[in-house]
Design a protein around this nucleic acid. Structure first.
Length: 794
RNA sequence: GCUGGGAUGGCGAAAUUGGUAGACGCGCCUGCCUUAGGAGCAGGUUCCUUCGGGAGUGGAGGUUCAAGUCCUCUUCCCAGCACCA
């Protein structure tokens, strides 16, 4: 059998698409419904692997399908081109990060085109272009003006390998999310976005989003709401008090000591009043030396008593001791807790170790510590109350404050790295920060820097930057040397796609009104509590500043799965199991590779699929078969049987593609092709419909074959074939069961009554004997489907 | 530990409201055609079987004429969170 020349076809069709400009979206057009389909813009790492195909080419199937459904589809792409790898490559190979990055992008553009994607390149956005990052800087200044960006001293995570601070989200199990190095804790003055101010809305607005529960739940867990109260424990003989956060004010009468985090600001203040100053200082410095991981792994509680300091339990008025211990986190709540050893596991363990009194204030038979709720005892006038009632009553009694705490921390956006967006801030001689006025934007990244790792911001080595600041602002003024977390760049890129050339604004208000929120956003599940959360926050902040028209950036979201190496392991260079798609594309064609990836499983479930060569071969075989069919076309209308096959395929492909079940959509195409294979003379009209079904999946071949059957313009401008009423059936198949087990089937006219069906069923030979001998108790008939005889088993 | 998701052939997976379990594909088996191509064609392929049938969707119960699907208990796997007061 003759095989088609995929290389020639791909080259021709890609050239035709590029010249005809059919994928350029007119954003202002009003006749069609706008449909914004977004995928996460990639980092230009240089090596395009099979995972990129999975991300881009499969989203492209959906873009093409939506176009054929008559939508005005915006399907853009760009590059998240700031970031560490460029800088590391620069250090390792002595190349300029900019040159490295921009060369990679050129290569990747060509590769993405080779997949047969219908990306509208006229909307391309590159986050490291000064004309892009000027607006990142401008948006930063807007957040700053409204108190959403602030500079403060705080305990932060530090990656010793990458030599930069990290946001909380970029640390997993105490390790740097990027390089896996154990992070350290440092107290530094850094820039933060106050995402915690939006915690409540980020949480509440999730309810209305049409996302999968698993994605929403992961965000809910990350935001981590807990309702409780702030209570004040006065320090004896002073004016100060220790404020604690607790979710269990009902157990206040059982609080027998108070614990401060080692980094708590009061520690310094109280130090002079203690009798064991040295011990305390030793403990605090010891804690500081530990990595995050060491603190987590050491479940053994450590701590030190503040000798000579007592605080007053506001409920019992008793004097209780104060400890410093690293099981209390400075960054959560007030950085101090009231310890109730009888009703909290951690407090109990600590109390055992330091021989502290354990006072039970809930009636329970359960062994201490009992952490559930119950009825109070030994709690003064509140004894006998339920935990629920007592919570509010006790907070009122001690003049506390009901509050809600969130687990999420403010987003640390400073990075001590070179290849990022410069933070548009300068400092006056007193050290007060000032935003760089918009007339000086873009605030360019200096070129004369030494970006070898020193632990300090590379920008500090730039003479040009210092001179620039002195010239523009005056003697004694200094620049900010840190750059922004690249997640800031990616928090708004999808707004820029709507108006990428705009020199007066970050995007166009009218177009945003028309196109936002993004209809569907496809990406990786690793971004659930990173990019997806940041972008929602950023968008809400811009919404509050009346800069964007919607409170949420994305409507539907789908997380795709992962293509594993042929060994079933996650692909990585170090394991040597990275699959380079180029070889397969060359041998079997881009269409076969696309279709195989689409066929391996449902696209919207983040499963893991091992790459297999055999699958691509079979997909190529399937495409060959479609080409062979073109040799037996006749100018005839399809017969009834074929019309039925076409109708079924049309429904199945449309509904499955809509739900990202590309695997079953393709399987129904295979069934259709098998049916067509049964015709020695095949209706050309039917074959044309097959090509239309195929077009989103195998865009090159469909385009090529379309021309051979008389198509004059691109197949990708055609409508998806639709069979509104299906095909009229004359017969139906009824499954015959005995006691719920299938025993046979009969075919009857569609208008057959139950009687007719029963008569027919009784003539089935194997059933006839069965029904004769046994007593039929009941007959259940589900019209058009099932006839079930219930017989007496004896 | 908490939260969420899941478990279906040798493998990837299908299965509207409970109504033919295993579509489609891989792999494997048999045969054909050819010849050495990661080929093509036809048929078979859940398991067991004395070829009549019997069993079967992680396990044990239950509801129902009928359960992969609903309920209860349970085991294991994956993901997220985790000293968060």
């Amino acid at each position: 059998m003759e095989k088609f020349d995929h290389q020639k076809i791909e080259k021709e069709t890609q050239k035709y698409w590029e010249e005809s400009g059919i994928y350029t979206t007119d954003l202002s057009e009003t006749k069609k419904d706008p449909y914004y389909l977004l995928f996460e813009f990639p980092y230009p790492s240089g090596d395009l692997h099979i995972g990129h195909w999975y991300a881009f080419a499969l989203t492209d199937i959906f873009a093409r399908f939506k176009r054929m459904q008559g939508k005005n589809v915006l399907f853009p792409m760009g590059f998240d081109s700031f970031g560490l790898p460029a800088e590391n490559a620069a250090i390792k190979h002595g190349v300029n990060p900019r040159e490295w990055t921009y060369a990679n992008m050129d290569r990747m553009r060509a590769q993405v085109k080779s997949m047969g994607t219908s990306v509208d390149w006229s909307k391309e956005v590159v986050s490291s272009d000064p004309e892009y990052y000027r607006w990142t800087q401008w948006l930063f200044s807007k957040l700053y003006e409204h108190g959403l960006a602030e500079r403060r001293n705080a305990a932060v995570k530090w990656c010793p390998k990458d030599q930069t601070v990290l946001a909380n989200e970029q640390v997993t199990d105490g390790k740097c999310e990027r390089c896996g190095t154990e992070v350290e804790e440092k107290t530094l003055t850094q820039w933060f976005f106050t995402i915690t101010k939006y915690a409540k809305r980020l949480l509440e607005d999730l309810d209305a989003l049409p996302w999968k529960e698993e994605i929403k739940d992961a965000q809910r867990a990350w935001i981590g709401e807990s309702k409780g109260a702030k209570l004040s424990f006065p320090v004896k003989d002073t004016e100060v008090a220790i404020s604690v956060f607790t979710t269990r004010p009902d157990t206040l009468f059982g609080s027998t000591y108070v614990v401060l985090a080692p980094e708590h600001p009061l520690v310094g203040e109280l130090l002079s009043r203690t009798k064991n100053k040295e011990d305390i200082e030793n403990y605090v410095s010891q804690v500081k030396k530990k990595t995050e991981r060491e603190r987590l792994e050491n479940k053994e509680k450590t701590g030190v008593l503040l000798e000579g300091i007592d605080v007053i339990n506001p409920a019992t008025k008793e004097l209780i001791p104060v400890f410093i211990a690293d099981y209390v986190l400075a960054s959560y709540g007030t950085g101090a807790v009231m310890a109730v050893p009888a009703h909290d596991e951690r407090d109990y363990v600590f109390a055992q170790k330091f021989s502290l009194p354990v006072k039970q204030v809930l009636v329970t038979e359960a062994p201490v510590p009992y952490t559930g709720s119950g009825v109070l005892q030994d709690s003064g006038e509140f004894s006998g109350m339920s935990s629920e009632e007592a919570k509010e009553a006790i907070v009122k009694f001690v003049e506390g404050e009901l509050t809600t705490n969130y687990r999420i921390r403010d987003w640390l956006v400073s990075r001590q790295r070179y290849w990022g967006c410069p933070i548009p801030v300068v400092y006056d001689p007193e050290g007060t920060p000032h935003i760089v006025p918009s007339e000086h934007l873009p605030w360019l990244l200096p070129e004369d820097v030494d970006f070898t790792l020193s632990g300090k911001s590379p920008l500090a080595t730039s003479k040009e930057l210092k001179e620039r600041v002195t010239t523009l602002f005056g003697e004694g003024w200094t620049p900010e040397y840190d750059t922004l977390d690249t997640f800031v760049d990616s928090s708004w890129y999808f707004l820029r796609y709507l108006d990428p050339e705009d020199v007066h604004d970050f995007s166009d208000q009218a177009l945003m009104k028309k196109w936002l929120p993004v209809d569907r956003y496809s990406g990786g599940s690793e971004h659930t509590t990173m990019h997806l959360l940041y972008a929602r926050f950023f968008h809400k902040a811009l919404y509050d500043l009346a800069l964007v028209p919607t409170p949420e950036p994305f409507n539907e979201r789908m997380n795709r799965g992962l293509i594993m190496g042929p060994d079933g392991q996650k692909m990585s260079k170090s394991k040597g199991n990275v699959v380079n798609p180029d070889e397969f594309v060359q041998k079997f064609g881009a269409d076969a590779v696309r279709m195989y990836l689409a066929f391996i499983g449902p696209y919207n479930e983040p499963g893991n699929y091992p790459w297999s060569l055999d699958g691509v071969v079979s997909m190529r075989r399937f495409l060959d078969r479609i080409v062979w069919l073109s040799g037996r076309l006749v100018d005839e209308e399809p017969d009834a049987a074929l019309r039925k096959s076409l109708s079924q395929a049309s429904t199945k492909v449309a509904t499955d593609t809509e739900r990202f079940k590309f695997n079953t959509a393709i399987s129904s195409l295979m069934v259709l092709v098998r049916d067509m294979d049964g015709y020695e003379k095949l209706s050309k009209a039917a074959y044309k419909d097959l090509l239309l079904f195929l077009a989103p999946f195998a865009p090159h071949l469909a385009e090529h074959l379309w021309k051979t059957v008389g198509g004059t313009s691109s197949i990708h401008l055609e409508s998806f074939p639709h069979y509104p009423d299906g095909v009229e059936e004359t017969e139906m198949t009824i499954i015959v069961q005995v006691n719920g087990k299938k025993r046979g089937e009969i075919t009857v006219p569609v208008d057959a009554t139950q009687d007719v069906v029963e008569k027919g069923a009784e003539t089935i030979p194997s059933l006839a004997t069965l029904l004769h001998e046994e007593q039929v108790i009941r007959k259940i008939y589900v019209p058009g489907r099932i006839l079930n005889f219930v017989i007496n088993k004896n």
